[in-house]
Amino acid sequence: MPLPRRPTLLRHSALATVIVAMIACAGPAADAPPAATGRDAAAVELRPVTVEEWRIELARLEGRIAVVDMWATWCIPCIERFPHMVELFHRYEAEGVTFVSVCLDDPGDEQAVASARRFLEGQRAVFANYLITENTADAFEKLDLLSIPAVFIYAADGELRYRLTADDPNDQFTDSDVEAAISNLLGELPLV
């Protein structure tokens, strides 16, 4: 059963503030304070895909719990939330949870795409990162998105079990909803 979703609480942490200021200034995200991980930023990739190609990639994730973060550099709440996704990735990677980000920046805006790549590097987002190459309005429609940030969480059988969005003003998701959803799905896995 989907979790009850609650209104968004923007967590204005000092880190988020630094990141937002950096993006707003179009400064190099790679200059961001290093995230709490020792992995090399060189391992960070942003792979351009069409929505159809993304769906194929998504289908390949079946068999594992998959957390998909839809984001863009123009979406400030997305930028504010992203460090939490990276934190969850490190917390749950060993438990077999896959994290993926799908960037919805304007693919024709070279500065925006470069900024997205630098941001991911600054975050040490060493999971799979995709950039949708279709125009953003069409991409939203094909992905059935009204707004971002949005986090889609798939069970190991490939079913979309948690569609966490800000689509309802009275029921916007929070970071704790993401954690609770992952925890619930992990609790459903058979004990080995």
Partner: peptide, 10 residues
């Protein structure tokens, strides 16, 4: 509609 999210307070 298409654009930025409206951020509602909890």
């Amino acid at each position: 509609s298409h654009g930025c999210s409206v951020e509602y307070q909890r």
